[in-house]
């Protein structure tokens, strides 16, 4: 006779699987919903056409990255060889050693993360992406499971998706373009909002990290 806790354990296993493999479900449901709702709306032709345009757009985005990526990766290589990255990493160590506590405090990733953050803060998306990818490559070196995101990576991604920026340059340009009288009045509220989102991304990443550590310990006990 199975113990009554058997079902609970199965349920827990399913939840754990869902949390760790949700990207498969997100991908699946995005496409299922698109086809079903597209058919109901009579927009199925548009949905089919968007496969082509979407695929084309993705390659365009990737190709357009090559040049600027090559340039900044080249600059980063010089910065690494001349010790600048190590210097920056040492400078911000007091903060980052608490945030990225799973990698060595002197890891080269820290310098790259700092460069990425600086570029983002000044709205230089073109430079921020190569720095961010470099940081990810360094974090991947410290990662045990090469196909699975580490806690440091999730935190770094959270910081990036929150999109911390001192001045929203693109938005300001559009506002000026349509004749907004006082476009600078949105700078302060935008900064406040982006700071709130940025800080909460860090807090949530840390909470998730704590939760997943406990989960791993529990799993070891079970096995």
């Amino acid at each position: 006779m199975q113990s009554p806790f058997f079902m609970v354990r199965v349920f827990k296993k399913i939840c754990f699987y869902a949390i760790n493999n949700y990207m498969n479900y997100i991908f699946y449901f995005l496409i299922v919903i698109s086809v079903v709702i597209g058919a109901v709306n009579g927009k199925l032709q548009d949905v089919v056409n968007s496969i082509m345009t979407g695929a084309e757009l993705s390659v365009k985005v990737a190709i357009s990255l090559i040049g600027i990526m090559a340039f900044w990766l080249g600059i980063m290589e010089i910065a690494k060889k001349s010790g600048i990255i190590d210097f920056i990493a040492k400078l911000i160590k007091p903060v980052t050693k608490h945030l990225f506590n799973e990698i060595p405090p002197d890891a080269p990733a820290i310098g790259d993360i700092a460069m990425n953050f600086t570029a983002n803060a000044f709205g230089l998306a073109n430079a921020a992406t190569p720095f961010g990818i470099k940081a990810m490559e360094e974090l991947q070196k410290e990662n045990d499971k090469k196909d699975t995101a580490s806690n440091s990576m999730c935190l770094f991604l959270g910081m990036n998706t929150a999109g911390f920026q001192l001045v929203p340059t693109t938005v300001l340009a559009i506002l000026i373009g349509i004749g907004y009288k006082n476009p600078t009045e949105i700078i302060a509220p935008t900064l406040l909002v982006t700071t709130i989102a940025f800080v909460s991304a860090i807090i949530m990443a840390k909470l998730f990290q704590g939760f997943s550590v406990k989960k791993e310990v529990k799993n070891d006990e079970n096995s």
Partner: peptide
Amino acid sequence: VGISKLRYAVWVG
């Protein structure tokens, strides 16, 4: 970096 198992990164974002 070739990672397809994103764990909680999407939820945080």
